[in-house]
């Protein structure tokens, strides 16, 4: 399971790629990290209601995949969806408002952390039942195919979802109908606290694609450019009617499964090895090999992101809560 040994051909070279595009990827990575850290603080501080499932350490999967998509492409997500949302273009403010339960949130305060989404930005509210988004994404892709719309769906799920019947059923139908879905398995080695070697005889998730008759690929999920390259290839294949594709992105969750999980089940040497492969630090080091990117540039990105989050939190704390009349609206169309 050593991600550094998996094949990955970056479609975008860090040396020759467009500087502003590459820096935008960096900004998204940092935005997700800083957003999650702030949310964690607000949650532990007690000012934010609900529960949280965070993605620190997995930022490159969201950013790399979403950067390969067009604005009118869709993603489906999970209970761990903050990173996907930011990468797909949801605003910091609408997300913070949602987390504070405000009526100005992206789901009017009715979704919350686990159901973050905004259809106008191409993100279905997070499906918090493990595997539940997989048939849903296949259905969206079926609609695109039947209506001859050139769109694709990227369907995010974790390694835990692979054990669900929904994975088998949804992936199989996507395969037999050649649907334009990029199945994105963020393999962070743990389904909640259970390590994958206890629940998978074959821990290479991408191998499963072949048994359904389509292409699978394992990618270093902590290398944003490798993810971007693989996702671009997969999306292009889907758009040409050669979908679906299964991407297994090897990554690691630095924080607990959910609130107040101290991750005692993650071995110390494993954590250290993965922390040494942190997607943001690695990408920063890559960027700094360019002559036109400096430490000061990267620091400026981080400062800008933190400023945006600071302002967003202040507004979100004062954002209007729904009236109780909202309880019974939006049930039926």
């Amino acid at each position: 399971m050593n991600p550094t040994s998996t094949p990955s051909t970056p479609a975008v070279s860090v040396l020759t790629g467009d500087r502003s595009f590459l820096l935008r990827l960096y900004e998204q990575l940092v935005l997700i990290r800083e957003f999650e850290e702030r949310v964690k603080f607000l949650f532990l501080e007690g000012t934010m209601p609900g529960t949280i499932h965070q993605c620190q350490g997995q930022e490159a999967t969201a950013v790399g995949v979403c950067a390969a998509l067009r604005a009118d492409d869709y993603i489906t997500s999970t209970f761990r969806g903050h990173g996907h949302a930011l990468a797909k273009g949801l605003g910091v403010q609408e997300m913070l408002d949602e987390l504070f339960g405000a009526v100005t949130g992206c789901c009017k305060g009715k979704g919350g952390s686990m159901h973050m989404g905004n259809m106008d930005k191409g993100m279905v509210p997070g499906i918090a039942i493990v595997g539940g988004g997989i048939p849903l994404a296949a259905g969206m892709a079926l609609a695109f195919k039947m209506q001859r719309r050139p769109q694709v769906v990227a369907c995010f799920f974790g390694d835990g979802a692979v054990a669900e019947g929904a994975f088998h059923e949804g992936v199989n139908m996507a395969a037999i109908w050649n649907l334009p879905v990029v199945f994105v398995c963020e393999n962070n080695l743990y389904g909640a606290s259970t390590r994958i070697d206890k629940v998978m005889k074959n821990p290479r998730v991408s191998d499963r694609a072949a048994s359904y008759g389509f292409r699978g690929e394992t990618v270093d999920g902590n290398d944003v450019l490798a993810v971007l390259g693989a996702a671009r290839r997969a999306a292009a294949e889907c758009r040409e009617g050669q979908g679906p594709v299964l991407l297994e992105l090897l990554t690691y969750r630095r924080t607990g499964h959910s609130r107040r999980d101290a991750c005692h089940y993650q071995a110390k040497d494993e954590r250290e090895a993965w922390f040494a492969r942190d997607p943001i630090e690695r990408y920063a080091a890559q960027l700094l090999t360019r002559s036109d990117v400096t430490l000061a540039d990267l620091a400026a990105v981080k400062a800008r992101v933190i400023q945006e989050i600071d302002a967003g939190v202040e507004r979100a704390k004062r954002a209007p809560q729904p009236t109780v009349a909202e309880l019974t609206t939006d049930v039926l169309a």
Binding site: P135, A138, M140, Q147, M173
Partner: peptide
């Protein structure tokens, strides 16, 4: 033709597919 879709024996899967297709306007 093409609008009567036979599925595998997969009630969970094809129901989810119907939901997804409905969300996208079918």
């Amino acid at each position: 033709p093409g609008r009567i879709i036979d599925t595998p024996i997969a009630e969970l899967g094809f129901t989810g597919i119907a939901v997804g297709a409905a969300m996208m306007g079918l």
